[in-house]
Design a protein around this nucleic acid. Structure first.
Length: 581
DNA sequence: GCCGTTTTCGGCCCGACTGTTTTCAGTCG
């Protein structure tokens, strides 16, 4: 499973790219390092394993030169080339590139002329108006740099998908109300539902683009305008989000939508395919060599003109979707409407905010066929994990509530804690009493890879475990996944019929998209759960489904896409007939 | 630095916007 080593390798390559850029190296050489970094970022396995097999060069974008540097770096933790580069380029100058609006040329200029080698010093110099004495730098540039640094500090990186999505939806509703706007949609990484979002990208169709941009940048939620042109506007919201709007003509809408949805690697592939057919693709359409326009009004027309099927935005990452579209082998992705119930929700019996009855009501109002009340187990004492006695009390309550709510099947679940040695918090007899058992790791996260893998495999070999919860333990932006051989875990889960959870909590989304893809490809079952700790959090399921879609997951892969009768047969206890995926 | 039904050299996506200067370089996506 890709761990810290992959991340360090990505950083290594990006650092080289930054330094080469500042040196003023050939831009294509710079791009080669960046492309290689992106490829490694998307790997589903450990780069060390690939190195061991001698297959670095089988990764697209890694040729002789980069493979050599990576081999040295990965074997010795050191790179002659990189050390040399650091002697030529002050690494602090590369830090300047993190400020939006500062590229290699300005970074170099500031260092050469004023000795600026940190964002801190850049800020000081801008405040003291020392930048505007430089050629081609005026007062506005200086003010923009200051504003940019402040925004950067205030935001601290990318926004999680859920809040970004909610903010963008509000903008969309407003845009669609503009009299000049015919259509408007999400674009960019937001439309592709990446787990974190940089800027919010929106697109609109209109015959009066300037008027639309003008209304947009003057919306009350815009606290400052970053850019305003005849077809494009960019603002900062009170929530410190950057929102970009692009306006195209209605007949160009599909082309614009396709172009601004990306991803970049996907679009580069699309352009290359077009080129091979003597066609040209841009945000206005697809054009023949003589300039005749042959597609652009809809996305479907764009892809069709290239001999491809339309593909859901979640797949557009150049991870095989183009080949699949060409062969008519695109997966039929899971949709929110396929989800028949939620098998992981908490109540105020442990650390949830609402009562079991309130959670059941919320599930019923969302049209679910079933819900599993699954609180924490006994070793989670500090959040009132259930004792033997309270298990029985809760079970009795569930039986009473089941009579009151015959429309929905109420399952008694548990999120049982996996102890350090891989044993579970309850004995088999206790576990047998639950309808559905989710086993999760909550402690001892710093364990080494081998021990953690053995621990988890022991836990999911327990015949009473149905689901392995938030399988990698990561918290987006806060905690790296624990060290574990995920492939070995997936193999075991596949053998034993344990479903791997895609946990929908905004900061988890665990399994993440590429891991879900790996699990699916290896034939494992998945289960998409909200892990709701309050009734309204049942709605987080949407983001879990989106993560699954990015992992090419189909409804047939998902345990809780099964109707109740089939679900119950899949959850059958040892000794009963239990169907494995 | 990578890559190849245009393969060992010569390309590598390309258009919008800003700021500064007055015709365009730099940055971004």
């Amino acid at each position: 499973m890709p761990g810290a080593e992959n991340a360090a390798t990505v950083e290594f390559l990006d650092n080289i790219a930054d330094m080469l850029e500042i040196k003023g190296e050939n831009t294509f050489r710079v791009r080669a390092y960046r492309d290689a970094a992106r490829q490694i970022e998307n790997l589903t396995e450990d780069i060390q394993d690939i190195l061991r097999r001698g297959e670095l060069r089988s990764i697209p974008g890694i040729g002789e030169g980069i493979a050599e540097k990576l081999t040295e770096f990965l074997t010795t933790g050191h790179s002659e080339y990189y050390e040399n580069l650091k002697k030529q380029v002050n690494p602090g100058v590369a830090e300047l590139l993190t400020v939006p609006g500062i590229g290699p040329k300005k970074a170099r200029l500031f260092f050469d002329a004023l000795g600026i080698d940190s964002v801190e010093k850049l800020q000081e110099a801008a405040r003291a108006h020392r930048l505007s004495s430089l050629p081609r730098i005026g007062e506005k540039t200086e003010a923009n740099i200051l504003a940019s640094i402040e925004r950067m500090r205030g935001r601290g990186g990318r926004t999680p998908l859920a809040p970004a999505y909610r903010a963008a939806e509000k903008f969309l509703l407003q845009l669609r109300e503009f009299p000049e706007v015919e259509k408007a949609d999400l674009a960019g990484s937001l439309r592709r539902m990446r787990e974190t979002i940089g800027d919010l990208d929106l697109i609109a169709a209109s015959n009066q683009p300037e008027a639309v941009v003008d209304r947009f940048v003057h919306l009350p939620s815009a606290i400052s305008i970053l850019a305003q042109g005849p077809t494009k506007g960019s603002i900062i919201t009170s929530g410190n989000l950057q929102v970009d709007l692009r306006v195209v003509k209605p007949e160009e809408y599909g082309a614009g939508l396709q172009y601004f949805t990306g991803s970049k690697p996907h679009n580069i592939r699309i352009r290359t395919i077009a080129e091979g057919k003597g066609l040209k693709v841009n945000e206005y359409g697809i054009f023949k060599a003589d300039g005749e326009r042959i597609a652009g009004e809809t996305e479907e027309s764009m892809y069709r003109a290239l001999g491809l099927l339309w593909m859901p935005p979640e797949l557009r990452e150049d991870r095989g979707e183009i080949e699949a579209a060409r062969e008519g082998a695109l997966p039929r992705l899971v949709e929110p409407s396929h989800i028949k119930g939620d098998l992981h929700v908490h109540t105020d019996w442990s650390d949830g905010a609402n009562s079991p009855e309130e959670m059941i009501e919320a599930a019923r109002s969302r049209g679910y066929q079933y819900i599993a009340i699954s609180d924490h187990s006994v070793s989670m004492g500090f959040i009132h994990g259930l004792t033997q006695e309270r298990i029985q009390e809760q079970r009795a309550l569930i039986q009473t509530l089941q009579k009151k709510y015959p429309q929905i099947k109420i399952l008694h679940g548990i999120e049982v804690n996996i102890r350090g040695d891989g044993s579970l918090d309850y004995d088999d007899q206790t576990l047998a009493g639950f309808d559905v058992v989710t086993a999760s790791v909550h402690s001892g996260l710093g364990m080494n890879k081998q021990k953690m893998t053995e621990r988890i495999i022991r836990a999911i070999r327990n015949p009473y475990v149905n689901i392995f919860g938030h399988p990698t333990g990561r918290i987006i932006g806060k905690r790296e996944p624990y060290e574990v051989d995920l492939e070995a875990v997936i193999r075991t889960a596949t053998e034993t019929g344990v479903a791997l959870e895609i946990n929908s909590q905004t900061d988890r989304l665990d399994l993440k998209d590429t891991d879900a893809r790996l699990a699916r490809d290896m034939g494992a079952g998945l289960c998409i759960n909200s892990d709701a700790h309050a009734a309204d959090q049942l709605d987080l399921m949407f983001f879990g489904v989106e993560t699954a879609r990015r992992g090419w997951v189909t409804p047939g892969d998902v345990l809780n896409a099964l109707p109740l009768n089939l679900l119950l047969s899949r959850l059958a206890k040892p000794g009963q007939v239990r169907r494995v995926a």
